[in-house]
Design a protein around this nucleic acid. Structure first.
Lengths: 166, 166
DNA sequence: CTTGGAATGTCAACAACACTGACGTATTGT
DNA sequence: ACAATACGTCAGTGTTGTTGACATTCCAAG
């Protein structure tokens, strides 16, 4: 159905070699992407799981455990282990829901916000350098390809993150 | 040197919000990026580490353990466990180095090549779809930003992978 | 030639973090 | 009352990372 480009010219960028380079670029870039926060987390005996939790709680203060679960794509047992340590360490608070008392609304404490900021800053610094080096048009393309690469349900979460309701 | 853009317009894409979106896009996209191979690997009781090993051995037949180590960025002990199972399962062969008997040259067997192909195909399919949806210019930008995001040493490995010496 | 150090790779034990499965509790809604 | 939902927890397992200890091989200094 509407195959589109027929000639060789338009398909040049879809050769196996081009695709392979893209795959390897994703692999190496993701390592760089996580390197700076990982160093900070290692000092504190935390891992990437803690980073992700703190990030998305910071993005959506008051989010429920269930919502966080589907965004992160892990099991509740796995998330619970992380949340427990964050709450014990005073970085996150868990409040019983006002309308539905079964739910728990999650918030960052001041200390939690401080860590989130520190991790964000490190990651943003690298992202900023990459953006600056590549230029605005490259950034637009970057975002387009990444969006097209997401699964549908992840895509949904990604867009839900856009309209922040603080 | 040559700082370039000074005004607000050219720096719009460097706002914290833009950077945050880029960060979340990387997070969600990487999940999609690994989803298809992960499904295949789960059937075979393998993990991503096996995928990475098989991929880079396939890229550089005869590579040594040490070289693979620095590309993958893990400890030799961690890699060894993965290599052992791959060798036991007949996907990889390890040959004692000809010039230096301390080294081991790694090769894929036919069975190993078959798995590599199967994983590659799955990952390439998604990459191809994303490339096709985003268009050639977006792809160029995508690659530019990813390259700028890598650590220097990873960047080196990335480029070394370009000149294949089969 | 021998000896000591460096390089390469292997084995063992441990920690982090994901998973499944089962169960308990409180709350909601029919 | 009853079923479904939201959350937490205990137990067990697997992958993947880590450090520590050790065997083998190479090479160069004495």
């Amino acid at each position: 159905m509407a195959e589109g480009p027929e000639g060789g010219q338009a398909l040049l960028f879809l050769t196996d070699d081009q695709l392979r380079k893209g795959i390897e670029a994703m692999f190496f870039a993701y390592r760089g992407f996580t390197a700076d926060p990982d160093r900070i987390l290692a000092e504190l005996a935390y891992g990437r799981a803690h980073h992700r939790a703190v990030h998305f709680i910071g993005r959506r203060p008051g989010t429920t455990v269930n919502n966080l679960l589907s965004v992160l794509g892990v099991t509740k047992q796995s998330l619970n282990r992380v949340l427990r340590t964050l709450i014990e360490d005073g970085l996150v608070t868990s409040e019983i829901g006002r309308t539905d008392k079964r739910e728990r609304n999650l918030y960052l404490t001041n200390e939690g916000r401080a860590l989130e900021q520190r991790l964000s800053d490190a990651q943003r610094d690298r992202m900023r350098a990459a953006y600056r080096a590549a230029g605005p048009e490259a950034v637009a393309g970057f975002r387009q390809v990444l969006e097209a690469m997401m699964d549908d349900d992840l895509h949904r979460h990604y867009h839900e993150m856009k309209d922040v309701k603080v």
